[in-house]
Each structure stands twice: as structure tokens, then as C-alpha cells.
Design a protein around this nucleic acid. Structure first.
Length: 429
RNA sequence: GGAGAGGUGGCCGAGUGGUCGAAGGCGCAGCACUGGAAAUGCUGUAUAGGGGCAACUCUAUCGAGGGUUCGAAUCCCUCCCUCUCCGCCA
């Protein structure tokens, strides 16, 4: 959420920055509301001060011997009642206005960082790094896509998953299930060794949590909801981890707080009919290991580089070629002020595919979630960052396509062998 | 799910209608004392919003929301949460 003071004092700055995201908004009405809200608050609190004074006077008079029902006290009572009515009326206006303003503000995305490259859509994203040598098909070979490999090796069931749930769900089996588990453990251990505290949060989250991290109110159609309970299936661990510290004040010396969370993630994928219908790329339920930082505003830029590097380290440890791109202002997510995407090379598909998104959100989520830190006297909002480290299903896809062998087996990176129990997936006999 | 108890500041804990944002203690910070420390003493020590260059000041907040009252931490209602016992359950 954006700062109300900024809205009151400098709405043009907000409009300018939102324009960089391709958003044309006229904030004059909102500014008006914010100012009116402040005026109402001033009137109301002055009246309340009057009321408080009268209340005290009554007490003093009675203590001094005035008759509790005498005319002197009665006059004060009448005055008190009159003020009470006025306050109630003002309060109602104020609340209505505030709710309306907040509702509007919650729909506005974060302002892009000054450093974020301007652009309209993904075509304007900027590649900042390439790592590894992408595998391409030799003259006499054909590279399979991961779902072909997985099907051949019996790693998952898609048809039967429809029976269990519906399309876009997958059931991992045998070595497939084992590989998924190995990857989760591998990633958790890798990050845990770098100072990330492991957290296994609830994956049903309430709407306050979704609002706090930015998924609500705008993206309600992207999440699954348990209608009877004000609970939703979390679309990313970013949601519960943000709310881990919602409404808290954290001592500055404890920052940064770094968490690594494994959770299943659930997304409706509305509007993506027909895309990535096969395999592990786009599912309603997938596993993800998420990195999350709560940090001091002065250090968030450096933290962003670090969290990205920590995500990249997973791909490097798994010997998966990738590139890092910086998203342009038009392609960034709602809560982000700056984002690096990691795209892994999928040899079978012959393309780079997003496997991690590392964003710094500035104080955007912190303001929505009221997460502050205390340094010296006052408190201020801290900064939050999140990054996938990594999407597990897509990692498996990349490993299958990258490690595929002519004999039909899949060779796995050495780093994974202790977790998987072998450095190779062989066709089951 | 049933029965009971309870939710007060960073923590413990007092406060059952009046000047209470809230005694006392602990903790923490500063100062004094000390060669240094401990002990001791003094002072300070919540959050949010508004106004003010500032000192400062106004309002709100004692789980949340509503009500009674001139006035509510204190009385009433609803909800949430925690604890104990019973039931159920992985």
C-alpha cells in the first residue's frame, strides 16, 4: 500500500511512477478524500477534547459537593450529550471515508524503484546475466521434453490425477516423488546453511494475510478459497511468511530476518487455458521453496542482490544453465518495486523458462501488514524481499531435460545424489 | 464438540465507574557514585494519527467490536484468542 501522506502532499509523484508501470490514474479524488479525512479527524478530536474536559468537570463538581442531579451538573451533562452526538456523526463520516480510501489504495500497485528499467511488457525486460552452457540437440539426437521423459520413466501420473482432482494437477510416483522430496530437502539445506531460518507455515491463510502481501483485493480470482472459513489456499509461501510478523515491531538489531519456507502453492491459473498443459510447468498445486527477508530500508538494495544470488546458487549447484533478467516496470508484479527473474534453460523445449522471481517490495507489504522495526526512539516500516529458491516442479523439469541420456536414463547432478540416493534415474524394470 | 478459568504496557502484576495511558516490580537506557564493575540512587522508558520549526500539544488504544453513562480497564452484549478438564482425532 502507498503512503497516505505522500498521497496528500504529492499525488503527482505517485501518478508519474505508476505511469511507468503503464497505469494511468487520476489521484485527485483520492487526494481530496485523504485531505478531507484529515480535516474530519481534526474536528472530531477537538470535540472529543471538549467532551473529556466536561467529563472531568462533572467529576470534580460532584466531588466538591455539588448535587449530582442539580442544575449545575445537569447543564454539563446536556453539553456532554450534545458533544457526544456530534462526535458520533463525525466519526461515522470519518470511518466511511477511511474505509473507502483504504479500499482504493489497496488496489494500487507498488511504485517501481528508480533503478527499475522502464518498459511495457516482457519484451522490454533486460537480461543481466547468463550462466552455464545451454544444452542443445546434437546432429543425430532429439531431445525430449520433460513430460515425455517423466512419462517414459513413470515419474508421474497426469490422467489419474484428473480422477483425483482435476486437470493441472499431477501425482508424482516412485522416483518422481522421491526426486521432488530430494529437491525440497536439498534446497532447504542449502539455504539453511546460509543463515536462513527454516519455517513450515500454515498453507491455509486468512484474507488479512493475503491482503498484507498484496494478493487481495485485486487478485482474488487467482487463489482457491475455502468458502465457509475465510481461509484460502496459499498461492505462495510469501503470504504466510509476510504475516508471520504482521503487526509486529522488530528491534533493529535483529534485522535482517531471513526465512526459507517450503510450501505447496495453489493457483487457479485463471486465463491460462491451453498454455503449458503438459507436464510440471503450470499446475494448480506445486511445491516451492521460498526465500524471504525482513530488512532495514538502508540495506534492501544489497539484500535484493543477495537473495537473487542465493536463488542462483541453487541452479549452479544443480548445474542448470540459466539467465537472470531484470523485469521492466510494465512486467513487474503488483507488490514489487524491483524484480529479477531467473530463467532456467529447458533443453527439450529449447527455451528459457522462469524458475524463480526475486523481488524487493520496499515498504509496500510492510505498510499493508504493519511490520515495523525499532531503531533508537521511533519505529519505521521495514522492507521485505522474496525470492523463489526454487520452484521445485520446474526444477525437476529442467533436471530431466538437462540430464537426459541416449539410453533413456537421466543423469542427476552430484550435489543431489546424497538426497536422491543415486546420481541417475533409470527406467524401472 | 462439551464444561470451566482467563486475556491490562517489553515482561510480571495492581486496579470493579471519575482527573488512569494506567500503581508497584522486573527489564532496558541515560546520569550519579566507582580505579573499573556489582550494589545503590536519580531520571527516563508504549503505539498510531493530527497540529507545531521546536519545546510541546490534542485524540485514540487495557484481546476485538458494539452498548449503558456527562465520564468505562472497571458495568452489559457479541465475537476472537489462550489455558485446564472431558470427548474426538493424525
Amino acid at each position: 500500500m502507498l503512503d497516505q501522506r505522500l498521497l496528500r502532499d504529492n499525488p503527482d509523484l505517485i501518478s508519474q511512477q505508476l505511469a511507468r508501470r503503464g497505469l494511468q490514474v487520476d489521484l485527485s479524488a483520492l487526494q481530496q478524500m485523504a485531505r478531507q479525512g484529515r480535516d474530519l479527524e481534526e474536528q472530531r478530536s477537538n470535540l472529543q477534547a471538549d467532551g473529556n474536559r466536561i467529563g472531568k468537570e462533572v467529576g470534580l463538581k460532584i466531588k466538591a459537593g455539588a448535587a449530582p442531579n442539580g442544575p449545575e451538573v445537569q447543564a454539563l451533562r446536556d453539553e456532554g450529550n450534545r458533544i457526544k452526538q456530534q462526535v458520533a456523526a463525525l466519526e461515522e463520516q470519518e470511518k466511511g471515508l477511511e474505509a473507502q480510501l483504504r479500499e482504493q489504495l489497496l488496489t494500487l500497485p507498488n511504485l517501481p524503484a528508480a533503478e527499475a528499467p522502464d518498459g511495457r511488457d516482457e519484451r522490454d525486460n533486460v537480461e543481466v546475466k547468463r550462466w552455464g552452457t545451454p544444452r542443445t540437440a546434437g546432429l543425430d539426437e532429439e531431445l525430449e521434453e520433460h513430460w515425455q521423459i517423466a512419462e517414459r520413466l513413470g515419474l508421474f501420473e497426469t490422467e489419474r490425477s484428473v480422477r483425483i482432482a482435476q486437470s493441472r494437477f499431477v501425482t508424482l510416483l516412485g522416483q518422481g516423488a522421491r526426486l521432488e522430496r530430494a529437491l525440497i530437502n536439498f534446497m532447504l539445506d542449502l539455504h539453511g546453511g546460509k543463515g536462513y531460518r527454516e519455517v513450515l507455515p500454515p498453507i491455509l491463510v486468512n484474507s488479512a494475510s493475503l491482503t498484507g502481501s498484496g494478493q487481495l483485493p485485486k487478485f482474488a480470482e487467482e487463489s482457491f478459497r475455502c468458502a465457509e472459513d475465510d481461509l484460502w489456499l496459499t498461492p505462495t509461501a510469501e503470504v504466510p511468511v509476510t504475516s508471520l510478523h504482521r503487526d509486529e515491531v522488530i528491534p533493529a538489531e535483529q534485522l535482517p530476518l531471513k526465512y526459507v519456507a517450503y510450501t505447496p502453492c495453489f493457483r487457479r491459473e485463471a486465463g491460462s487455458y491451453g498454455r503449458d498443459t503438459r507436464g510440471l510447468i503450470r499446475l494448480h498445486q506445486f511445491n516451492k521453496v521460498e526465500l524471504y527477508w525482513f530488512c532495514h530500508p538502508d540495506h534492501s538494495a544489497e539484500a535484493h542482490r543477495q537473495i537473487t544470488a542465493d536463488a542462483e546458487a541453487v541452479l549452479e549447484a544443480l548445474e542448470l544453465p540459466y539467465r537472470t533478467i531484470e523485469l521492466c516496470t510494465g512486467d513487474m508484479g503488483f507488490s514489487a518495486s524491483r524484480t529479477y527473474d531467473l530463467e532456467v534453460w529447458l533443453p527439450g523445449a529449447g527455451a528459457y523458462r522462469e524458475i524463480s522471481s526475486c523481488s524487493v517490495c520496499g515498504d509496500f507489504q510492510a505498510r499493508r501488514s504493519a511490520i515495523r522495526f525499532k531503531e533508537g526512539k521511533g519505529t519505521q516500516l521495514l522492507h521485505t524481499l522474496n525470492g523463489s529458491g526454487l520452484a521445485v516442479g520446474r526444477t525437476m523439469a529442467a533436471l530431466l531435460e538437462t540430464g537426459q541420456q541416449r539410453d533413456g536414463s537421466v543423469r542427476l547432478p552430484q550435489a543431489l545424489a546424497p538426497y536422491f540416493g543415486s546420481d541417475r534415474i533409470k527406467p524401472s524394470v
